[in-house]
Simulated scan of single mutants.
Amino acid sequence: MTVPTLENNRVKLSLLDLSNYKHLQRIAPQKDLIYYSPSDISTSEKLKDYVQLAVDGYYHKTIIPFIVFDKLHKAYAGSTRFGLINWKNKLLHIGWTWIGHEFQGTGLNANMKFLMLQYAFETLEFEKVEFRIDERNNKSRRAVEKLGAQLEGILRKDVLMKDGFRRSTCCYGILKEEWPEIKLKLINVIG
């Protein structure tokens, strides 16, 4: 599986692996960066384990992990990925996204998601993209709703968190036939 570099004038998404993840060591330990995730990236070793799981998924063709480079600030900003890739049914998830606090609210995330959605629908020709978000994570829920994703349902208490809490997960989706309208809207947002 060949992974492209997804890039526009604002952001560059390239394959995240064990050769480049160290660029994220400064960002990963930021307080509450992935509070709503069952993952742990708070130390260099835990970040390496997190990346190793993504790399393993890449070799099994179920994950495409990206390292995020913010071209405006000329700095590595975080990570995102395609996950739970179902090649037969032409469905994948976009998620596992975290960017440093200094990059949040700057338009970086909208640019990332635009490139990822464009690749999923126009290059891979997938039928659907899903997002799974902790029900309590209102900031991320608003962000995917702004993209045009529709809430399809809530999986009740389906994920065990690091602290033992059982979260409920909101399932959002975008269908291939919805992409042209969403694309036009996003182009206006990202400029």
Rank of each mutant, 00 (worst) to 15 (best):
N8I: 03
R10K: 14
S14M: 07
K22D: 04
L24Y: 02
Q25E: 13
A28S: 14
P29G: 03
P29E: 02
K31I: 03
K31Q: 12
D32G: 00
D32N: 13
Y36I: 08
S39D: 15
K46R: 15
K46I: 07
D49Q: 15
Y50H: 12
Q52N: 14
D56S: 14
K61Q: 14
P65D: 12
F66W: 10
K71P: 11
K71C: 11
H73A: 15
Y76K: 05
A77L: 09
S79C: 12
W87M: 07
L92H: 10
T97E: 05
W98Y: 08
H101A: 04
E102K: 10
L108F: 05
L108E: 04
K113S: 08
Y119L: 02
T123V: 07
L124R: 07
E127F: 07
I133R: 10
I133Q: 10
E135M: 11
R136Y: 08
R142M: 01
V144P: 04
E145G: 00
E145I: 02
K146N: 06
A149N: 06
Q150F: 02
E152C: 03
G153A: 05
L155H: 12
L155P: 01
R156A: 10
R156L: 12
D158C: 13
D158N: 15
S168T: 13
Y172H: 06
Y172W: 05
K176W: 10
E177Q: 12
W179E: 03
L184V: 01
K185D: 10
L186Q: 08
N188Y: 01
I190M: 05
I190P: 01
